[in-house]
Nucleic acid binder design. Structure first.
Length: 313
DNA sequence: TTCCAGGTATTAC
DNA sequence: GTAATACATGGA
């Protein structure tokens, strides 16, 4: 376990248009971002990151050794022209309301293994519980990363090789229940190079999906999450309980609709950025149901910055 | 206490 | 092929 390599912080500013950082980081794509005072703190790869945003800027603080900003711009998809994406959405009333509710929401570009593993842990779990499991997994099996002086320890997401080495019992201690067997087997498959996640990126979407479906605990929905959140396949359209509810209520007059019908409708109706539209509908429904509580964490971590107002609106 | 959660695998028809 | 059911755990 390597000690922190440096102690100095670097500040990087990005000019942006239409970037809603809070919506992006709380929309159920990634599970490691925490509101600390008026900042968001998380880990990308081996790098601790603190983010804030204003109307025209995203400001990042990272340790000096990670100050090349290419990886961060890629993760946050800062260069994406959002207006082009929103213009491609269908012009119906539900989409208009969803965009009005969370305009500026972006899809992230995450590491495939972290995304795959996190979503294997997501099945039949609430987002807050997924966050707890992932945090525990990182603390138990991740590596310490460099943080500012006085900051509590922070850990990277554990590699597949690391998780393949530990027992299912050790994984279960992170409260993941029956998902431990799935995660462990998936880690073993990666470690044995049965599926190469890097190669999936260059496949056509159907073949990419088939590759992901080889992992235990991965069905259509989780495969589509990874296609969308890690690989950037913008037509992937994960249908979970919230999106099912959104489609039924907003497009099928509340009727019960077979999953197969929802799948065909999603592919026909939402266009080339269907996955983006899906994320707007997902976040809109959760917002409407009052399921987004953006309160700063009440721990010593919050004292790194003075508590500020909630970003929730 | 009961229901349900960014589902999947298994079994039954 | 579609429909029910078990699965670990904990928030609401």
């Amino acid at each position: 376990m390597a000690p922190p390599a440096s102690t100095s912080l670097t500040r990087i500013q990005f000019e942006v248009q239409d970037y809603d950082l809070a919506a992006t980081l709380t929309s159920g794509q990634a599970f490691r971002w925490q509101l600390c005072g008026d900042c968001w703190e998380g880990v990308i790869g081996q790098c601790w990151v603190r983010l804030t945003s204003t109307e025209r800027r995203v400001v990042a603080e990272v340790m000096e050794e990670h100050s090349s900003c290419v990886w961060l711009a890629d993760y946050l998809q800062l260069k994406v022209d959002l207006s082009k994406i929103l213009d491609a959405f269908p012009t119906d009333e539900p989409m208009r309301l969803a965009v009005r509710a969370c305009r500026g929401l972006r899809l992230l570009r995450q590491d495939p293994w972290e995304c795959l593993a996190s979503f294997i842990l997501s099945s039949n779990k609430q987002i807050v519980q997924i966050q707890q499991i992932v945090r525990s997994l990182c603390e138990q099996f991740g590596d310490r990363v460099s943080v500012p002086p006085g900051h509590p320890p922070v850990y990277s997401f554990p590699t597949a090789h690391r998780l393949a080495q530990c027992s299912q019992g050790e994984l279960r201690a992170c409260k993941m229940g029956f998902r431990a067997a799935y995660l462990h087997k998936a880690a073993e498959m990666i470690a044995a190079a049965e599926v190469e996640l890097e190669a999936v990126a260059s496949l056509p979407v159907a073949q990419a999906r088939d590759s992901l479906l080889k992992f235990p605990g991965v069905g259509r929905k989780i495969a589509d999450c990874v296609l969308l959140f890690a690989y950037g396949f913008h037509r992937a359209f994960p249908i979970d309980v919230w999106v099912t509810k959104a489609l039924r209520q907003l497009y099928f007059a509340g009727r019960s609709v077979p999953r197969s019908r929802l799948e065909s409708f999603s592919q026909d109706h939402f266009g080339p950025f269907a996955g983006y539209a899906q994320q707007y509908l997902f976040h809109y429904m959760r917002q409407r149901a009052g399921r987004l509580r953006l309160e700063p964490v009440h721990s010593e971590r919050a004292s790194v910055r003075p508590p500020g107002r909630s970003i929730a609106t």
